[in-house]
Structures are given as structure tokens and as C-alpha cells.
Lab assay of single mutants.
Amino acid sequence: KELVLALYDYQEKSPREVTMKKGDILTLLNSTNKDWWKVEVADRQGFVPAAYVKKL
């Protein structure tokens, strides 16, 4: 499975999103959308801005 690194803190703004902290390592589930990537963090799945994460 592919992992991404959170480059910035992100606070979810809708139930479809997830909160992450800078430095978090997240499991990447889907990166087909260039703006929003689906990730899993702490047993929750949701979207984060693609610009806020980097593939490892």
C-alpha cells in the first residue's frame, strides 16, 4: 500500500474529510482526483487536499 506524508495540519470541514497533523503518515487509498486524495488515518477514511500531502 502507498503512504503519504502530511505536509501541513488540516482540519476537516465536512464528514467526508479527515483531520491530519503535519508529519502524520497516512495510507493513500485513491489519488485519481488531482485536488482531493482519499486517505486512511486512525481507522477513518476520508479526503484531504492533495497539495497538503506528499507521496513517500
Rank of each mutant, 00 (worst) to 15 (best):
R16I: 12
K22Q: 10
D43E: 13
D9K: 04
K38W: 14
D9R: 04
D9I: 03
K22N: 04
V4Q: 01
V41I: 15
K22Y: 05
P15C: 10
T32C: 13
L5N: 02
E12R: 14
A6E: 01
G46F: 08
S14C: 11
A6V: 11
E40W: 08
G46I: 05
G46C: 03
V39P: 00
G23L: 03
D35F: 15
P49T: 02
K55F: 09
W36N: 02
E17L: 06
S31Q: 10
K55W: 08
V4P: 00
L56Y: 09
P49D: 02
N33P: 05
M20K: 00
D9N: 09
A42F: 15
T32L: 10
A42L: 14
F47T: 03
P15T: 10
K22F: 06
L28G: 00
A51I: 11
V4M: 05
V4E: 00
Y52G: 06
K54T: 14
T32Q: 13
D24M: 15
Y8C: 14
V18A: 06
K54Y: 11
D24W: 13
L5V: 15
S14N: 12
Y52F: 13
K34C: 11
K38S: 07
D35V: 15
K38H: 11
I25R: 05
V4A: 11
E12K: 14
L28A: 02
V41K: 15
D24Q: 14
K1M: 12
A6Y: 01
V39K: 00
L56E: 04
K38L: 15
K13L: 09
E12G: 15
E12T: 08
L28W: 02
T27N: 09
D43Q: 11
L28D: 00
W36V: 03
K55A: 08
L5D: 01
V39F: 00
W37V: 07
Y10D: 01
E12I: 07
D43A: 10
Q45G: 07
L28I: 05
K55P: 10
A51V: 10
L3F: 15
L3P: 04
K38Q: 13
S31L: 05
T32Y: 10
K55L: 14
T19F: 05
A6W: 02
Y10V: 01
D35H: 15
K22W: 03
V48H: 01
P49R: 04
S31A: 13
Q11D: 14
L26T: 01
M20H: 01
E12M: 13
K55C: 10
K21S: 09
S14T: 13
K1T: 12
L29K: 05
L26E: 01
K34M: 11
K54S: 11
D9C: 06
V39I: 08
W36Y: 07
D24S: 08
P15Y: 09
V4S: 03
V41T: 15
I25K: 05
E2L: 12
N30K: 07
R44M: 06
P49N: 03
P49A: 03
V41L: 15
K22R: 11
K54I: 15
Q45W: 08
D35N: 14
A51K: 15
Q11A: 13
W37Q: 00
S31T: 09
V39M: 02
L28Q: 00
S14V: 05
R44P: 00
Q45K: 11
V41N: 15
A6T: 04
G46M: 06
N30W: 08
Y10Q: 00
T27L: 14
Y52T: 07
